[in-house]
């Protein structure tokens, strides 16, 4: 479970990340004065995954990350980080949280900031932290307040990675960066995670941050879980059907499948479905595997569609009782 040194990026290592569990959520919910921000969320994030957390504004992403990062307590349910409560010393030591606003002391120099990290974290890796800072040509003697947004993000990353976390939680880490720095930081993030087998959970709005970067996905909308699982498996368990409808009547045998969303445009209809047990043959349509954007938009537009969790993302009842 502890990925240190045994990362799947080691040359020649087989590609499967460890089968441990980084995060397990058992029916967690969070109620603020204005109402429920998160309701009855149960899912599992296997260790070693790079997971994107997606949802519209106000969907409960930051709340979920806050509960996993021990900044918030759930109103209902429990969450475990590597089997331990988020507030436990063990979970704290293994988790790094990078908040959206990337809080750093503006008067501190870069060097002092890293020293703070060293003093506060027993497993601190000074070299890793310095390497990340140096790769961006950030002067060690500069005060945080004088740095550009990209440089500050880099220092915040260095602080998070210097902790050598097994779980790195990032709340919209790249939103204030220009495309060049974003690409660079994403490269650094992936390379570090590859080398150390770090589990990454990051919320994002940007499809470009998800595609090719994340191999796991958790989608929430209106405080509820919509999708969770391996990106490839989620895509392959759906089909995008296109065909012609007759006077607004969709083909009757569409009912054999779980329909997520249907749209019509002129004589054409498109439907995002989860194919039924008999397969898609025999329909008057053309079937394709949706891309990530089509899948996400389909689910975000159709809050009534049943949620889908792949087997690795499911929390079974036995585990829930044990928790």
């Amino acid at each position: 479970m502890n990925g240190n040194g045994a990362g799947y990026g080691d040359p020649g290592e087989p590609g499967e990340p460890g089968d441990g569990t980084a995060i397990a959520a058992y029916g967690i919910g969070k109620k603020y004065r204005r109402g429920w921000a998160l309701r009855d969320c149960s899912f599992r994030l296997p260790a070693g995954r790079i997971c994107g957390l997606v949802g519209p504004n106000g969907a409960g992403k930051t709340t979920l990350l806050g509960i996993a990062g021990n900044l918030l307590e759930p109103t209902t349910g429990t969450l475990r980080v590597f089997g331990e409560a988020p507030e436990s010393e063990g979970a704290n030591r293994r988790t790094a949280f990078l908040a959206q606003e990337k809080p750093l002391f503006r008067r501190f120099t870069v060097e002092e900031t890293l020293r703070l990290g060293r003093e506060l974290n027993p497993g601190w890796d000074q070299r890793a932290a310095e390497d990340i800072v140096r790769a961006g040509n950030v002067p060690m003697a500069a005060r945080i307040g004088t740095l550009s947004g990209g440089q500050r993000t880099r220092v915040a990353f260095a602080l998070a990675f210097g902790k050598r976390p097994d779980l790195l939680i990032l709340d919209e880490p790249m939103s204030d960066l220009d495309p060049l720095v974003r690409h660079e930081m994403m490269g650094t993030l992936l390379a570090e995670a590859t080398e150390h087998g770090t589990t990454v959970l990051m919320s994002t709005h940007m499809l470009s941050e998800l595609e090719n970067v994340c191999d796991y996905l958790v989608v929430i909308a209106e405080g509820g879980l919509r999708l969770a699982g391996e990106v490839d498996d989620l895509l392959e368990s759906h089909a995008l059907l296109t065909g012609a409808h007759v006077d607004g009547q969709l083909p009757a045998n569409l009912a054999h499948h779980t329909v997520v969303e249907t749209r019509t445009s002129g004589r054409q209809f498109t439907a995002l479905v989860r194919p039924g047990p008999d397969g898609l043959d025999g329909g008057a349509w053309q079937a394709e595997t949706p891309n990530l954007e089509e899948l996400l938009l389909g689910y975000l537009r159709s809050p009534q569609a049943a949620p889908l969790l792949t087997p690795s993302a499911r929390i079974d009842d036995v585990q829930a009782v044990a928790a």
Binding site: Y8, G9, G187, T188, L190, N212, V213
Partner: peptide, 12 residues
């Protein structure tokens, strides 16, 4: 995989 991750920002 690490080198490709670093240069192309692609999942290992």
């Amino acid at each position: 995989a690490k080198e490709v991750a670093e240069t192309c920002a692609v999942n290992p």
